[in-house]
Simulated scan of single mutants.
Amino acid sequence: MIVNSTEVQNNFGKYLMLAAQEDIIITRNGREIARLSALKDPLSDFGETPGTVMEKAEAYGYGGRKASYEEFLELTKDNEERYEYIDGEIYFLASPKTAHQIALTELFVIFYNWFQGKDCTPLVAPYDITLKRNAENINVVQPDIMVICDLAEKLDKNDYYQGVPSLVVEILSEGTRSKDLIKKLDLYMSCGVREYWIVNPLNKEVTIYLFEDKDIRNHTTYRKHETAPSYIFTGLSVELDRIFKY
């Protein structure tokens, strides 16, 4: 199916459902710029059957023909929907579920209180973070929580942050777990993030990665009833019973 970008933007939910059945070719000014297709889940050990459609209308990539960074900007400008752009693929971010939002709220309160009076600032989504693997590979993500320690120095003239957060938190959902566990882990590690928290409300676990020299230096998984401490911020810790209430 071939559809122009204006039609897709105005009826995104409709085309998300159709993409589970067939690829949607997206055009602008008569030129093909992207393909909307359902992703396949490589993580069969998380309970999905290999080859089944994943993302469940929560996060879809414009797969197949990859979009350029300029095409991503053009496709998403003046659009109130939330998107991420990773390694040439565009991902739609839909409204999260209750467990996700409870974990996000509790975590951000803990982070906000702990960082009061300190040099670093915790921020919460939606907030674009632009990460560059190199000059040609530009990515735009919206972590659930990010801790930024050079905010004043890295704001551009339009009030957008152009640096790399020290710590990033992603809260998994059924639709975004493969992206968060694989694509984003590699992206954050490669682009200079020092610590990455993966919060899993489904299994009530938190895994914390410490990155050094674009590699995993250490990682630990904490489970319900345990307390998860930060590697890089001494004294910052989270009781998992507080963020996993249901």
Rank of each mutant, 00 (worst) to 15 (best):
Y85D: 02
F72S: 01
Y161H: 04
V3F: 05
L16F: 14
Y83I: 01
V238C: 11
T6R: 12
N79K: 07
R194A: 12
V169Q: 07
I232N: 02
Y231S: 09
I24T: 08
L155V: 10
I2E: 13
E32H: 12
D215C: 05
I198V: 15
G61S: 15
S5Y: 01
F233P: 02
R194Y: 04
E195P: 10
F108N: 08
E55Y: 10
A19E: 06
K66P: 00
E205K: 15
Q101D: 10
G88C: 07
V169K: 06
L18H: 11
P143Y: 08
F108C: 05
A38P: 00
R31I: 06
P50A: 08
K40A: 03
V238S: 07
T234G: 02
Y222P: 07
L36F: 02
Y209S: 07
E153N: 13
A59M: 14
A57Y: 15
E174I: 11
Y112M: 12
A125P: 01
I24G: 09
E80D: 14
Y15C: 02
G235D: 13
I182D: 11
P165Q: 08
E226H: 06
L172G: 04
S173L: 09
T6S: 11
K184D: 07
E89Y: 09
I243E: 05
E58P: 06
R133H: 07
G63N: 04
I86Q: 03
Y196P: 10
K245V: 15
F115Y: 06
Y246N: 15
N139K: 03
E205D: 14
G88F: 04
G63T: 00
E136I: 00
K204I: 11
R28W: 01
F244I: 08
I198D: 03
Y196E: 10
S37E: 03
S230K: 07
T6W: 00
I110H: 09
P165C: 06
N137Y: 03
V168R: 08
P229Y: 11
S5D: 02
Y112I: 05
R82C: 04
E226Y: 05
S230R: 05
T49Y: 11
S44F: 14
L202T: 14
I102N: 10
M54E: 10
M146Y: 05
L236H: 00
H225P: 05
L39I: 09
S166V: 06
I102D: 10
Y188W: 12
N134Y: 05
A152D: 15
I243T: 02
Y196A: 09
I33S: 01
E71H: 00
V169G: 05
W114K: 03
K118S: 08
A38I: 12
V199G: 11
K179G: 00
Y85V: 01
R223H: 13
S44L: 01
R28N: 09
R65S: 03
N203Q: 14
F46R: 14
D87Q: 06
G63Q: 04
G51P: 01
L131G: 08
C191H: 02
N200S: 12
K204W: 11
E32Q: 13
V168S: 06
G235M: 11
N29T: 01
G175W: 07
Q101K: 07
T76H: 01
G64E: 02
R28P: 00
